[in-house]
Design a protein around this nucleic acid. Sequence first.
DNA 1: CCCCAAAATGTAAACGTTTACATGCGCTTC
DNA 2: GAAGCGCATGTAAACGTTTACATTTTGGGG
Lengths: 335, 335
Amino acid sequence: MAANATIKHVAREAGVSVATVSRVMNESSLVTEHTRVQVLEVATRLGYVPHGGARSLITNRTSTIGVLLPDLYGEFFSEVIRGIDQTARRHHYHVLVSSSHADQKDIEAVLRSMRGRVDGLILMVPEIQVPPAVALLPEDFPLVLVNCSDESGHHDAITVANYDGAYAMTMHLLGLRHRQIAMITGTPRNLDAAERLRGYRAALKDAGISPDGALELSGDFSETSGFHAAVELARRPFRPSAVFAANDAMAIGALSAFRDAGLSVPNDVAVVGFDDIPMARFVEPPLSSVHVDISALGECATLRLLQAMQQPEVHEVRREIMPTTLVVRRSCGTQ
Amino acid sequence: MAANATIKHVAREAGVSVATVSRVMNESSLVTEHTRVQVLEVATRLGYVPHGGARSLITNRTSTIGVLLPDLYGEFFSEVIRGIDQTARRHHYHVLVSSSHADQKDIEAVLRSMRGRVDGLILMVPEIQVPPAVALLPEDFPLVLVNCSDESGHHDAITVANYDGAYAMTMHLLGLRHRQIAMITGTPRNLDAAERLRGYRAALKDAGISPDGALELSGDFSETSGFHAAVELARRPFRPSAVFAANDAMAIGALSAFRDAGLSVPNDVAVVGFDDIPMARFVEPPLSSVHVDISALGECATLRLLQAMQQPEVHEVRREIMPTTLVVRRSCGTQ
DNA sequence: CCCCAAAATGTAAACGTTTACATGCGCTTC
DNA sequence: GAAGCGCATGTAAACGTTTACATTTTGGGG
């Protein structure tokens, strides 16, 4: 268990009342400097640490924010947590995480068990639709959705500019005279995947190129799925001249497959990715990608949540979009 | 704030006493099936969720484990959290995380603020020495150290078999007739880095090769540092025939640098890494590495902590070591 | 039909805080 | 020197649970 010494012990030992100890611990109001150091000395000596539960019981705040993360491997996860944690700590909040949810039932269970333990929630559920479980929360429960499509507009939301990024990247490829551009998509029900695909399609359409289902291969964001998709492409008699993978991991898998097939990137086929993970610049050839500032995403979400929690009257629900930037390296060649 | 309805509201509405509601919520003892469904119905209708703080106040347990993580980028982080979270959830525990600590003061502050909020702690501080802040914890506070050298043997600890893994990998290179083997080390004060270096040195020594300081280049686990170290090696008139990077990220940086220098891997120089991140098999050439099951590390740490918390009488302090396996791919060539 | 044990439920104290309010004390001010 | 005021501190209620113990209800055997 946590601490043994309670505020009463400290009070008795220091010869003051519990109220005074409480005041000292909260660095609040007027306490004589003399009493203050006295109490602090006793507190440290006894190893006193306030009981978070008791505190939250009376103040009605837990100083904790909950974070629900998808079952996602890779660097994305750690980066976003980093952003969240740093921001939360700066504002003296704790972070209760829960990752890897198999299904809706799972999410619901976690949501239930987190309520009563957190003051607000960051939900990272890159699903096409808002999980029904959200409806179980009280109307005014502070909540920020990350990378989740909320058509209702009822909740705060932050998303990456997936559409814009994919559009820009596709346009860049078109500018390099590519006309047969394949896309390796992400998991079907994943919002990021869907938006990136939409951006890709829109760019093709705007360039007057009619869509070709055969050029859209399904992947699942893993290196392996990118590899397999590229193997399949390499086999075709009429190969596309460029391949746009919905994330860098798949792009790197694709690079590997094309190399195995004896194809040169970017001469025989251009390859680009999305996310711009640190490794992107170190593969061969260095990978062109769409840069996303993931840790800023976490920070941004946390700041919005903090505002919703601390100044609900001033806070207004809105959707925010994190911009992306095009990073051109060698893997897509030059004109 | 969390929930609005309290146990009293539910009790009144259901026409029973708070004790009965409590019993129903805890799925405990004898309650008539009829009352049970009655109470549950009211609870759901009112959106009642027990107040975690109040509960922890009386039960003296928080059902939460704290996790302190280093300021670490990359996949390691997310994998270990995944292992921890999954295991904790399976045992109905929550996970309070805190990452990215700049220094000892920082760790101390986090430790303080976590006490009174968690029932036990997993400390991942890959430092050579146990952080002094640990001394502030009560003697019997459940604690598991991960990748932290605890010479005192006072605490539970789990470490990766860094020494063995590095020894085995170096031996493998020696078996391939390499005699000039360079190592790109990790951050100086990092325990993993130190142990891997030690394993490398021991293998050389056992092979009758005298140590050569010029073959030990310092890195910091980042792709970039591996790149720079390899650039420096490529420039030398007498190049080593093999390079052992203390992690895969640096190995991949090194691959990139050697390629830029016009050197062929593994023909001109062999390159190997450590960790076996998913990407290792997709770089060119596929990277030989020392495989570590990171998520198992998290699971293992959590299980030990849970035992220390739940059965302190049976639990005995000990050090555990996660084995590694050698994964040979093309980057180190063959005999 | 009564009695008793067992089962179901109720009562109330306790957990460790915070905080509104009460108290006491030392100063200033007349 | 009394009155009044402000500051430092103390007192006690309240927060939402759990649980030991008390009480009521149930059901079965005589």
